[in-house]
Design a protein around this nucleic acid. Sequence first.
DNA 1: TCGCGCATGTAATCCGTTACATGATTCC
DNA 2: GGAATCATGTAACGGATTACATGCGCGA
Lengths: 175, 175
Amino acid sequence: MSLKLAVLGLLDVEPGSGYALLQRFRTSLGFFWQTTHQQLYKELHGLHEEGLVDCETVSQETRPDKKVYSLNARGAAELDALLTKAATPTKIRDPLLVKIFCGRRLGSDALRAEVESHRRKHEQTLALYRMLHEQIGKRPAAVRQRYHHPELTLRLGIRFEEAWLAWCEEIGAEL
Amino acid sequence: MSLKLAVLGLLDVEPGSGYALLQRFRTSLGFFWQTTHQQLYKELHGLHEEGLVDCETVSQETRPDKKVYSLNARGAAELDALLTKAATPTKIRDPLLVKIFCGRRLGSDALRAEVESHRRKHEQTLALYRMLHEQIGKRPAAVRQRYHHPELTLRLGIRFEEAWLAWCEEIGAEL
DNA sequence: TCGCGCATGTAATCCGTTACATGATTCC
DNA sequence: GGAATCATGTAACGGATTACATGCGCGA
């Protein structure tokens, strides 16, 4: 259900083609949710069939035709309905935890190496998030206002990556 | 793939029926991964068909018959193979983030209420994890040694819940 | 000429969730 | 009498992943 919400939410901000939506997704919601172009296109077909979005085919000269989707009144109502339904917290669901949990059989060296590799990835992600966060901070207040909600999610992302990093360092030293 | 790893890992520690495995799962790996009895039973059937686990039907007098599964040599080899393959980090994937991201339409009051409700749940989860962690700390060193890997995962759980809590408090105050 | 970006899709498979189903025993 | 525990499953559906597929234009 969250992908549906995500797509409606993106269209609420601005109409766009599947391709364009995917670009926006990757650099925003995509940090915390994931999808592929296949799934996105399917979702858009579904939303169109349900009558929640309008679709207009736009011919382009030097580029392939594109289908520009936009939120209509029914879609906006559906978005509001989805936003009203309470979300339940989910589990971490990171395969690394399952591995470590079952890691008795694996030697300390192998575990340490894997933890170190994760540490590096989380370090990179943290750097990226911090950079994005700084960039938002530099914008004029009016623009910042528009990015307020995304910025809130980014802050959780930062806290999580910090938690990952600290944990990787702690247990890497211990293994 | 992680459920397969989880089941093999649980059987590596001790054989058991699907029902027994589910109990153990719920109070250990289940904090970070989730499953249902349906999925577990299906996985066990699959593993048995693949020849990775042995299965013995045990009749009981006052209880229904049960099937006790145990890891065999091929299963142990498969477990080692899975443990060797690198795990890639995953996204947070919590629906609350998608909601907040798209939350412009929802009023501050509704958002604040939802964040507060999540805060309470994470508070409870944190309390539970801390209690479990303390209990492990009280055990004699020999026992603690056996729970070392699970304990490492629990520590990440604690850090995550702390991050959630701090974030909920921060943005709750701001909304 | 090779690869990248634009733009869209089908198909197969797997994983996860929800609903439905049974039936004995034990405890309140 | 009713609920919880033990113990196992089938079926339907939906969401996610992976592979396969097409075709033009542009820059190195």
